[in-house]
Design a protein around this nucleic acid. Structure first.
Lengths: 210, 210
DNA sequence: TTAGACTTGCTTGTCGCTAACAAGTTAATT
DNA sequence: AATTAACTTGTTAGCGACAAGCAAGTCTAA
């Protein structure tokens, strides 16, 4: 297998830089490998070597394969949340929900490999033995709570039906998101943008006060 | 690891019976192991031995781990479809959609291990290297098409809004189902029955003619 | 019916690969 | 120069997969 990344030509001066670069290169390699080969094909040896290092460095840095995936998820989760936060800004209620929908859709287009890697790990995480399932559960719970908060704001503003239970409706919305992305991963022919548009329309319809 | 199943005391007389019993015992063992240990922990050795046979029989029967999972899914899919068909009967339109929802919910209660094993494999199937992804994709596509047909019937009968695109709405409904089950698997504390009830209410609301 | 040939079900031996850990080497910091 | 951190290499147990062999069941012919 050819090396898709290379060790830096000018090695960084400090240990911290050297270490950080190695970790980040290996995370990037892992994302590419997850997209190309799946979880099984993403071996620690392949991660290290395709990042330009030895077969053992990934283990040394992350302790275990699960440790690496945990770190990978932490990073992608943080990137997504930062992006979402920037785009939602001071919005709340319906508007925030719509922007969140669009942020997801745009990630599919702009960072498809990162999103796919994240979902591959999410869906792989429900193995009873999985060590990073708690990370996934916590992230999803926080996302749902954020959505529920937006719904509450929208109710106060009168733009969302007060008959709705925010926490439960957030769960339904989040389920739609996950289910759509799953079906897209299983069948890449699926028109994801159309599905996102339909989901958005349905959400608006369900939120509307009578 | 103790053996949860045992080889039959009275060995069946014919080769065909012997073989069928072995295959079925190993599939059952695999379902239990998937629930207890996940995909990784479900080794071919454990499957064979916990069914009362040798470490090599699962490989011999199913060719590979993927082959075994393929067969497992084929069986569980068939069981589910049979059950669904029995319960839906001659119903169509809204009524059929509601019965399908209830059938799913009841499976969660009556065959939790079978359902969980199925979902573990579904979610594990989107590995690029997965050999049983096509099975999953085809099953889901057929289920969606069945739902779309019910929606079309409901539109003809005037009980479902004619503004709806059946194929696309079926995708949305199916996504909800998958997403809810995923979140339940990640967090078993989640109130699945409540989520199913909410999903049903939302479906009715979305289908309703203006 | 029954003895030997044949077929099928099952077990054991083995190989290459993996994750993980330990021990060693090289590079940076003090 | 001494110490610490980053990285590489050696090694082990366990995995899936395949091949070879053994045992149980089935068939055929006298």
């Amino acid at each position: 297998m050819s090396q898709s990344n290379q060790a830096p030509i000018d090695s960084p001066r400090t240990q911290a830089e050297r270490s950080a670069l190695a970790a980040s290169s290996m995370i990037d390699s892992a994302i590419e490998l997850l997209n190309a080969q799946g979880i099984e094909g993403t071996t620690l040896r392949a991660i290290g070597e395709s990042a330009g290092y030895s077969r053992g460095l990934a283990t040394h840095h992350f302790g275990s394969k699960a440790g690496l995936f945990r770190q990978l998820l932490r990073q992608v989760h943080a990137e997504f949340i930062d992006d979402l936060h920037d785009r939602v800004g001071e919005l709340s209620g319906k508007a925030a929900l719509m922007v969140a929908n669009e942020t997801y859709r745009d990630w599919v287009l702009s960072h498809p490999n990162r999103l796919r890697a994240m979902y591959i790990l999410w869906f792989g995480s429900l193995d009873p033995g999985s060590e990073f399932k708690p990370n996934v559960a916590r992230f999803m719970e926080r996302q749902r709570e954020t959505m529920a908060e937006w719904i509450r704001d929208g109710q106060k503003a009168g733009e969302i039906s007060s008959a709705i239970n925010p926490r439960r409706m957030a769960l339904q919305f989040y389920a739609s998101l996950i289910g759509i992305n799953h079906q897209w991963l299983v069948d890449p022919e699926l028109d994801l943008q159309e599905a996102y548009r339909d989901m958005k329309d349905n959400m608006l319809r369900l939120l509307q006060p009578d």
